[in-house]
Design a protein around this nucleic acid. Structure first.
Lengths: 341, 341
DNA sequence: CTGAAAGCGCTTACAG
DNA sequence: CTGAAAGCGCTTACAG
């Protein structure tokens, strides 16, 4: 519609009766400008709908104002929610984000992330897929690279997604409900979240076992990828006398594979098996039986991860940790088990 | 790592022993440059790893080289797959894409799309969520705005996703298997795909009914949003004597809601009810029973939609229609029904 | 506290 | 077929 040429800072200057430099100082907040001049400039800019030409600014400052987000092919729904949150945080901070999808091995993905970081096009990179820890950096000479789904010793990530505290709550409740035999169906161990859930499962079971009168038994950790089929296979491979057993799956997709396999074997849920998932996938409330799971606020997680990235590239202190983004949703697949309070 | 200043076209010119203008002509393919000079410039650019500064180019050409993709909050997994394909197509065409998530009413979304199109930051806009047809444009004075999930009379969209031909195949196969009573659980009618599936259901049932010895009966069209809960409610509202009935749901999320409701009412699937979905969601192979559905290649759809956008903004003819991106996947929820061949 | 001037890296008439 | 020069819209020392 509007074939009109967009106004420039020179137009604003002319209108406000100041120099172009003054306009720039007001808009970037850099120079020290008198309140009255400042006011006048702002009003002029407003009145003609001035919006800085980002390309010109970028060329002059050698800052692109753009951040890259790396997505992968797994758990696309969760990533999209994270992207929404990250996108909002980036906009709030004055950055635009560009999305780049990668697949292949962890080495391939890492290579790609490194390329993007070195390309000079982006001021920072946030990855939703696991890469080798060596690729992560909190800035310094090169653009910061943060991971939203992994964490390492240097804490260059939003740990929330990797938090597995609720695995302990799940286990405690199941023990309290009388369960004594357990199995963990793990997710891809490339993901810190999967590692955290597995580690917490193993550690908690040991600890709880030591403190309880009756012995707790773990049938171990099976699976290792994020596919329903891997979970199904793991359950089909169980000995016939496995039940009664409480199966803690690393996410809902795995859990539905467990449900399916149980049905195939003629095991009832929550009779012979109880099952829990993670992520609160939309389908989980409608399976038969519905899935007990851990609701994760992916949008908030994406928002927070992006805020961390922005803080890193500005050299600011990381934003405070958000209140927990996770919460257990008890449904039919765990029978009468409920959290101890 | 590399604190080195990236090479400029001037560096390339110096190295190749030509002027900066010549380098530009070679790289943009605009001027007429002798093959030997051209070769020399290309080699020089290659040798020092020259990559054009997009900000500078953009400022000079007043073209941003950036396209906006609008995503929404529903069917996030499908959208992410489309985004992956669109992203690839954009890169192939030399564009970068930025993602912007919108929600709210169709009016809100339309407003947002219009803003983005008018903002001057993007050369084109592709939306994965429905907007008012008036917002769509195939270019001209303003940037083109295309929709990947809707279509209108002017065909400003990649119709593939809206294609519902397979609904007819589904119905024919079910009729051939002996089904006589049908129900359609529709998706949100804002989506062209949902409208197409509903319309095809209605039209086919009429046509097939007219041509068959035994009368076909439709229990009608219910639902109208993309939630499993709406489908569940629709089934719970059916009269007790509804079965046997073939339920054609507009997507898999709806179908799992149907499955759940059937179980709650004590109706067996595929005995009392047969059920079909759409989209081939990952969980559909693991429900009990597994879901017959329509597999959709969302990545290819996104790729094709983006190619259309690029063609529109370049004033080129739209790319040829892809071979069908859809295919029926027969599973347990339809019992013995199979396509007539 | 404010302005004149240079320059970021590119493209594109224009002249040769 | 090639080069010298201007200018896209901004920011930022520098001088006042």
């Amino acid at each position: 519609m509007s074939t009109a040429v967009p106004p420039t800072s020179r137009d604003v200057a002319r209108l406000a009766g100041v120099s172009q430099a003054t306009v720039s100082y007001v808009l970037t907040g850099k120079g020290s400008i008198s309140p009255s001049t400042r006011e006048r400039v702002l009003r002029a800019a407003e009145s003609i709908g001035y919006r800085p030409n980002l390309a010109a600014r970028s060329m002059r400052t050698r800052r692109s104002g753009r951040l890259a987000v790396i997505t992968g092919v797994a758990a696309v729904g969760n990533q999209m929610r994270m992207l929404t949150g990250a996108s909002r945080a980036a906009t709030e901070a004055g950055y635009a984000i560009e999305t780049s999808s990668v697949d292949g091995s962890v080495a391939d993905r890492t290579e790609r992330v490194l390329e993007l970081a070195a390309g000079g096009q982006y001021e920072g990179v946030l990855t939703f897929v696991p890469v080798l820890p060596g690729a992560l950096s909190d800035g310094g000479d090169s653009p910061p690279v943060l991971a939203a789904t992994a964490f390492d010793e240097q804490m260059r990530s939003s740990g929330e997604l990797a938090e597995a505290d609720l695995m302990e709550v799940l286990l405690q409740a199941l023990v309290a409900a009388g369960h004594r035999r357990f199995l963990h169906v793990a997710g891809s161990q490339e993901f810190a979240s999967a590692r955290a859930r597995r580690d917490t499962y193993v550690a908690c079971l040991e600890r709880l076992g030591a403190g309880s009168r009756e012995p707790l038994e773990s049938l171990g950790v099976v699976g290792g990828e994020w596919s329903a089929e891997s979970a199904r296979q793991a359950i089909l491979a169980l000995p016939d006398d496995a039940p009664p057993v409480a199966v803690l799956a690393a996410n809902d997709m795995l859990a539905i594979g467990v449900l399916r396999a149980a049905a195939e074997r003629g095991w009832t849920v929550p009779g012979d098996l109880v099952v829990t998932g993670w992520d609160n996938a939309a389908f989980g409330a409608y399976t038969m039986p519905s899935l007990t799971t851990v609701d994760v606020d992916f949008q908030a997680a994406g928002h927070h991860a992006m805020r961390q990235l922005v803080a890193a590239l500005r050299g600011e202190a990381p934003p405070p940790r958000e209140a927990s983004l996770q919460r257990i949703v008890w449904r039919e697949s765990t029978g009468a088990a409920r959290p101890p309070d």
